[in-house]
Design a protein around this nucleic acid. Structure first.
Lengths: 413, 413
DNA sequence: CATACTTAGTTAGTCGAAAAAACTAAGTTT
DNA sequence: AAACTTAGTTTTTTCGACTAACTAAGTATG
């Protein structure tokens, strides 16, 4: 239920509003902020003065006059606070410090051969210390940490319930990372959800409020953005499309034990296996390739891409993906469906097949305005999504100098 | 984007809040409202006085003392305003006037043999006049009208884009109805979405925020409730599960032209046709039935229900429904999936098959907390949903005496 | 090139609404 | 019956945005 509001609440809201407008639209003049927000110019003056005082924004010269006094432009101080973004995957770990203007100040990648949660977390802790040293950033200016993580992450507890990919069960990833980085608050989100958010903020999904991102890699998952926000359903597990039944009582057996799962048919592992068995050995040899080292990039580019065996494989995979995309569109009526992950390397060849299938399997009225696209963010999406998650929370803090005091009252209007 | 807020905004919000709390929790004491909302007792006193003055609420005696002065209970004045609810379906029309306490004050049903939009709308207009006479309700006390309507309804324009069931294309149903009932504002919603809302407010979905209702009748559609609200996606067309591909390149041809659509396989029409062809004639004759008049109710109850042909048909249909429900659960992670419409008559026999399929086809963590249920609202759900939609909007009005003045500023915090 | 006008931003005073504080009202407990 | 508790009211205070009147610094125009 709601909660009553008073003048202190809207004081906070108006300050968040002005700060957010300077962040998203800056450099911007006080007068324009007043016009856009509906606040009076005097109120904006007062709020801007507070933000200037706090060092959150600064003046950056003048804009051109439009027939009167020249506007003084306000801009967010991009170094007033920082965010930590982390991407965890099997065998891989990326840790990066960002400023508020989407710039990476420093970054570290690790190829991990361990898969123990404790090792991953302690690596994160060490990494963070090194990044602080390297960037000479004050520890308490890092206000939030976002983590993109594979598997089922409970939205209520932040606990990783299961990741078949990593082989983890019931690991409180968020709490562990918080502890390892000196109690900076952490938000953990499923990697497909994070990628979906990244596409909305920085990728093909800009300006869209209803978006689906499908991560087509070893595992398959989708991130759903409903009304501009990650939709997790009851427990935060929404978007687990990998184990949707695509072929009823047919097709290969999945790691989950079932038959006909989407992931069993279209995971990058399956696709590569199929490619190995389907492409004649001599063709591989001609191109200086060996079966064991075949990658999705090989399939995607000349000369392999034009081999008939590869083309028919892409067609087949594309048709299956197309069925899932069509069903997603029927069910969710999104503005845009973005295909990402390893299979996105197959690019427009794959896309054409998917689009044809969507054309066949959706109602015209529903389909007409929907776009299907291949992600252009490559493997950057999850990390950028983790950053976006941290940033969201930073800009929900009332006061950057005292994070503890911070979060707005829940359900507050 | 947002808009700035000031004291007038939260004055409105606090009044809506108190009114809504009295509506949902009444009879309730001022003191409890204060505790629950976080407002001070004095503020609640002032707001309650205003609402009493306006005739929106009234005092209804005392509750028991819990060790001090006895609380004075406040209750909504159920007749302070009224709602009109309408259900349109092929061949059928229901119009009902409700008070604010969910009571039907008067109701009219029509079996229409016409399917022209103009005829349906003019019937609504006449019906409304009669209902006003019958109930002796003041016309201007009817503040909103909710309509549950089959087909694709654009959420931005309120226009019915297409209903294959009614054979209507591009009909501005909402505007037409508004005009026919003397410019009372109208909200039109897809019938499955309306039913989903009804289940959440008055049915099995009470207390749930993430719910899917599947309407299994001649047409098949789903209503999705995300975070307690109807989710329509970009255009309002979300939930069109009827034309999801269930069998790839197999199964019967659908009215939409595709093969293997859910609706082609599981619509009540298909099921009845299948039943007619599958049940031996002599068995029908023994029970005094003829093929042509076979209904779902016959299949659902003794003695037909125990015939092996019927049982295996129900099993088959149930397995298909189960696949769709399982896929919905994987994708949306709802708290509860409710099966409604004609096929819901098949009851627990059908449910058991569906549940078994869901058990097989979903991840354990996702499945564990999800409930699958058969609706108990029978054919009342759409009308009650239409009422709930109207009620929602009535309780978003600032002032019931002057609706024109009313709706809160958009995007307002 | 001086006057009028426009746009940008500031300052002092006012107003509206909830909070705080100090009440009254009406019970229960011992 | 005295002490306490809970419910509700009235009066005063506080707080934050708005209003209005200002300054600042430009542009348009005859």
């Amino acid at each position: 239920m709601w909660i009553g509001s008073n003048s202190k609440d809207f004081k906070v809201l108006n300050r968040l509003l002005v700060r957010d407008m300077i962040r998203r639209r800056g450099p911007i003049a006080r007068y324009e902020i007043a016009r856009e927000t509906g606040l009076t110019a005097s109120t904006v003056t007062v709020i801007a003065a507070e933000l200037l005082e706090a060092g959150v924004i600064h003046e950056v010269g003048h804009a051109e006059s439009s027939g009167g006094r020249r506007p003084i432009l306000l801009e967010l101080n991009a170094r007033a606070a920082h965010a930590l973004a982390i991407r965890v995957q099997r065998g891989e770990l990326v840790v990066a410090v960002f400023d508020l203007a989407r710039r990476i100040l420093a970054e570290r990648s690790y190829d991990l051969d361990t898969t123990a949660p404790e090792d991953v977390v302690s690596t994160i802790g060490v990494s963070f210390e090194e990044l602080l040293q390297e960037t000479k950033i004050a520890r308490d200016s890092v206000l939030w940490c976002g983590v993109a993580h594979p598997g089922l992450i409970s939205s209520s507890t932040g606990v990783l319930e299961r990741s078949s990919n990593l082989g983890w069960v019931g690991v409180p990833v968020g709490d562990m990372i918080t502890e390892s980085i000196g109690n900076i608050p952490v938000v953990v989100e499923n990697i497909s959800n994070a990628a979906a958010l990244a596409e909305k903020e920085y990728g093909l999904g800009r300006g869209h409020r209803h978006l689906v991102f499908i991560n087509l890699s070893v595992g398959i998952g989708a991130g759903i953005l409903a009304n501009g926000e990650i939709y997790g359903g009851m427990q935060g597990y929404a978007g687990e499309v990998g184990h949707m039944t695509l072929l009823v009582d047919q097709g290969p057996i999945c790691v989950c034990g079932q038959q006909g799962c989407f992931e069993a048919i279209c995971s990058s592992r399956t696709v590569l296996e199929r490619a190995r068995s389907v492409i004649p050995e001599d063709i591989l040899r001609q191109n200086g390739l060996v079966k064991e080292k075949l990658t999705m990039a090989h399939l995607a580019s000349a000369p392999l891409a034009s081999e008939p065996e590869v083309q028919s494989l892409v067609n087949e995979i594309g048709r299956h993906i197309g069925v899932v995309v069509a069903n997603l569109i029927s069910m969710l009526n999104p503005e845009i469906v973005i295909l990402g992950g390893e299979l996105a390397l197959l690019g427009s060849r794959l896309l054409a097949v998917v689009e044809a299938e969507v054309e066949k399997r959706t109602l015209e009225e529903v389909r007409r305005q929907v776009r299907v696209r291949i992600s252009k963010m490559h493997d950057q999406a999850p990390l950028m999504g983790a950053y976006a998650l941290a940033l969201e929370r930073i800009f929900a803090l009332e006061d950057w100098r005292d994070p503890a005091y911070a979060t707005p009252r829940e359900g507050n209007q």
